[in-house]
């Protein structure tokens, strides 16, 4: 099978590009830890309200962990609890989220926080809130008629700016 000289150049260039992409992604993921949600904890979706930590949804300050806040969130058709999250600028936040019924999405628009919430599984993500602002949380997986009524807000508050 004869391959034209230029086709070899093109394939070398193309494959090298793909390898470069993969190396960048692998360093990001396995060295810097930027994995997408890969939550491993399972939970009884029909009884989430009585199971820790979902018996107490909300924003909790924590000490002695790698993160400063824990956001515990329960999604159900068609709302998030809590639907308003407020954290200070620069804080590291760990999200624990699950669903009480169908599959929902948990996307904080214009951030990298974007994960699927599936019945029986706890989705987890850690992020450093390094840009102040009011972010819209939307459900990005079709969950029924009220799908677009499912939204919330993340407020990343610059406390210094407020004090001034």
């Amino acid at each position: 099978m004869h391959i034209h000289k230029y086709e070899k150049w093109w394939l070398v260039f193309g494959c090298a590009t793909l390898v470069a992409f993969l190396v960048i992604l692998a360093i990001g993921a396995f060295h810097n830890g930027t994995h997408p949600n890969e939550g491993k904890i399972t939970v009884d979706y029909e009884n989430v309200d009585s199971i820790k930590p979902f018996d107490n949804p909300g924003v909790h300050k924590v000490e002695g962990k790698e993160w400063d806040y824990e956001v515990v969130l329960v999604a159900s058709a068609f709302s998030y609890n809590p639907n308003e999250i407020e954290v200070p600028l620069g804080s590291v936040v760990k999200f624990y989220a699950t669903t009480r019924d169908v599959i929902h999405g948990f996307e904080i628009a214009q951030t990298n926080i974007n994960m699927m919430l599936e019945p029986g599984y706890v989705s987890e993500y850690v992020a450093e809130m390094n840009k102040a602002g009011e972010y819209l949380i939307v459900c990005n997986e079709y969950c029924g008629t009220g799908h677009t009524y499912m939204y919330g807000t993340l407020k990343v508050v610059d406390e210094n700016a407020q004090n001034n």
């Binding site: 394939l11 692998a26 993921a29 890969e38 939550g39 994960m115």
Partner: peptide, 30 residues
């Protein structure tokens, strides 16, 4: 990729294999 319950490592393995499937399209373009 953003789902719970599947190990990141295996997700990444399939990402690598996904990039392989680009190659026949590169060939086709040529």
């Amino acid at each position: 990729l953003t789902e719970p319950g599947i190990e990141g490592f295996w997700k990444f393995v399939q990402v690598v294999l996904t990039f392989f499937v680009v190659i026949p399209s590169l060939m086709t373009a040529f």
